[in-house]
Amino acid sequence: MSGELDGTLLKVFVAIIECHGFSAAAERLHKTQSTISQSLQRLEEIVGTPLVQRSSRSVSLTPGGETFLIYARQILKLHADAINAVQLPDEQVCIHVGMPEDYAQFCLSGVLRDFQAQFPQVRPDICCEMSTALVSRLQRGELDLVLGVQHANLQPGEFLCDEPLVWVAAEGWRADKDPSVPLAVYAEGCAFRANAVRALAEAGRPWHVVYTSQSPRGIGIAIEQGQSVGVTARRLVPPGWQVLDEAQGFPPIDPARLMVWRSAQSQALAVEALVEILCRALGRSELLAQRGLAGLTAGHQPQQ
């Protein structure tokens, strides 16, 4: 080692890995791409070994980089913890949180109540969009934490739980003579839609899309008109809807994966507490035990 570790250099290194490249890291940190490259080069000189393998299309960690990434994240977390620990109680800070609108409707009221009981000086700023858009915002440095569904084109997040999916329709909906299933779904790229369509294809049942929307409420309006079938997480099924099963000709759907993504530059103590509250609201007992939260009860949902 030929120098002292600089937190700014560590942030650059972590951003390159989390953003899967130099240009996205530069956008997140509001720096030029050449500055990002120079910072990484300086860090590699300090630690005395290459940390990142570069190619024309991607970056990946060297064996030394894989080990160093663990310590870099811990150092950045301790840095944020130290700052948070000495903040005055009446000094309000903000954390920026993203989650899909339907999950916000399901649990946000109770989650925020529990969070602000622990951190009254922290103001949550909530952004509701599709999971893919939210993770992109996090990579650009606009969000500290994202709760969302893993999609095929997203970097892996921190696994929260499997999310069982079900077919839904308005109460009283019946299949007509058309054997093709009329779907009201999110746009292409949605994990719920992809899993549902794959289930229909494997069962040999034809389908066609009659309505798409980026909004859960838009999907809900289409379903409530009684002319289409949707797919959602079992826990998100609203009152007055029916769940369609194999007896009605609808095959089982593979579950989605509910994840959390967090930024290395986040308010570490507050974000960690919020993740724990989300685990309690949405996760499983084994996940809580892994996080040292064995005293929390699985399946407990916050009061709305």
Rank of each mutant, 00 (worst) to 15 (best):
L293C: 09
L236F: 04
Q225A: 13
A72E: 11
I83Q: 10
D90Q: 11
I17H: 07
Q116K: 14
Q33D: 15
T67G: 05
L200C: 00
P156S: 11
V47I: 13
L147N: 06
Q242R: 14
E142P: 00
L165W: 04
W167D: 06
G48V: 03
A270E: 11
E276Q: 15
P179K: 00
R198I: 02
A85D: 07
Q267L: 12
S266H: 14
Q265K: 12
F22Q: 06
V59P: 01
V231D: 07
Q214G: 05
E276F: 01
R234N: 11
Q41N: 09
W241I: 09
A199T: 07
T62H: 08
T35R: 09
A24N: 14
I75Q: 12
R57C: 00
A289T: 10
C190P: 00
H79T: 09
G299P: 09
Q139L: 08
A26P: 01
P63F: 11
R234F: 14
A169I: 11
D114A: 06
W167Q: 07
G249P: 01
A264C: 11
A169C: 09
H20N: 15
A196R: 12
G110N: 09
E158K: 03
L165C: 10
F22E: 08
L61R: 11
V166E: 07
C107W: 01
V168A: 06
L145R: 06
Q121V: 02
F22M: 06
F119A: 04
L69D: 09
P255A: 15
P238N: 13
G226I: 13
T232R: 12
A268K: 06
C94H: 12
A80D: 04
E286Y: 08
A203F: 00
L165R: 09
A26Q: 05
A289Y: 00
D162G: 09
L51R: 12
Q105H: 08
A184V: 07
D178C: 05
C190V: 09
C19V: 05
Q265N: 14
S60Q: 15
Y103C: 03
P251I: 09
E91Q: 11
V59D: 06
R57G: 00
V149S: 02
W207Q: 05
P100N: 02
V12G: 00
G110I: 08
T212L: 04
M259S: 06
A184Q: 12
G189I: 09
S131E: 03
P216F: 13
R28E: 12
I83K: 10
R54T: 12
L112Q: 05
E91I: 12
T35F: 04
P89M: 01
V59T: 12
V275P: 01
M99I: 07
A247P: 00
S39G: 03
A80V: 01
C94P: 01
G204H: 00
I70V: 14
R280Y: 06
P239F: 08
V59Y: 10
A175N: 04
H79C: 03
D102S: 11
H96T: 12
A196Y: 13
D125R: 14
A247I: 02
S180W: 00
L200D: 03
Q38N: 10
L138D: 09
W207M: 04
P100L: 03
V111E: 02
S213I: 08
L43Q: 03
E44G: 05
R137V: 03
D90I: 02
A80T: 07
R280D: 04
I223A: 06
A201I: 01
F106W: 14
P239C: 09
A191K: 12
A256Q: 05
S34A: 14
E158T: 10
L145G: 02
